[in-house]
């Protein structure tokens, strides 16, 4: 069942278009990986889906709702959470407070959800009173994802979660993303680390110069010769 669909998206920050009629589709519970060279417009696509940018053309549908042009604080209420690539935590607040802020728009008792998120990230539970600004890059990334999960979203948008992390930490992050997906959350992930991203993907998209170039199952893209040569380093 399709849960999120962006169709023919054309968008830019100024008059110049960054994306030209880009489309992606995510089924519920799937991992969708978007890969491509720097400047292909991958992050722009996520921002547009989340409402941080308003598309010039095209539509974005989430479940049965047309969410095109909806502001982020409304999109998040529908059930989509977004983790920006940088500055994705509240550094002077504790881990616990970061997670509470993730649940800001919830008016119900979210203690059960808090427990589940801590179960997903046990390392965070031990340090819940620590300020996030004092944590390492990998741990911050966990906090950022934990914060986004507090709303129990149906779709999680991740912008390059492995960027700037030591290689030894990267596999840990991807493992967590698989764990999150296993709880039933659909994930749309933008990644530089194309190989890892495609390995776990149900479906992958290759963007270049702001256009759809290829799309196929993750395995098929991994096996694709051209993709291998251009994006997977031989």
């Amino acid at each position: 069942m399709i849960i999120l669909q962006a169709k023919d998206i054309t968008v830019g920050y100024t008059e110049v278009d960054i994306l030209h009629e880009v489309s992606i589709t995510a089924g519920s519970g799937e991992i969708i990986s978007i890969i491509g060279p720097n400047g292909a417009g991958k992050s722009t696509l996520l921002k547009t889906i989340f409402g941080l940018l308003k598309p010039r053309h095209g539509t974005i549908t989430f479940k049965e709702w047309d969410i095109t042009g909806l502001k982020p604080n409304m999109v998040v209420r529908k059930g989509i959470s977004y983790v920006p690539q940088v500055d994705n935590v509240f550094p002077s607040m504790t881990i616990q407070e970061n997670l509470e802020m993730g649940a800001f728009i919830r008016n119900d008792d979210y203690s059960q959800r808090l427990k589940e998120v801590y179960e997903l990230f046990p390392a965070m539970a031990e340090r819940r009173k620590q300020k996030v600004g004092h944590l390492s890059g990998g741990q911050r990334q966990m906090v950022a994802m934990g914060r986004a999960l507090m709303l129990d979203p149906q779709v999680l948008l991740l912008d390059e979660p492995s960027a700037g992390l030591a290689p030894v930490l990267v596999s840990g992050i991807f493992e967590k993303i698989r764990d999150i997906n296993a709880t039933g959350v659909a994930i749309v992930i933008v990644e530089q680390n194309a190989k890892e991203a495609l390995k776990m993907a149900h479906h992958g998209y290759v963007l270049a110069m702001g256009r759809n170039v290829l799309d196929d199952t993750g395995d098929a893209l991994l096996a694709n010769e051209e993709v291998g040569r251009l994006y997977l380093g031989g």
Partner: peptide
């Protein structure tokens, strides 16, 4: 702390 993230969080 982080106004953009606050917005993204729904605040």
């Amino acid at each position: 702390d982080n106004k953009e993230l606050a917005l993204v969080t729904g605040i």
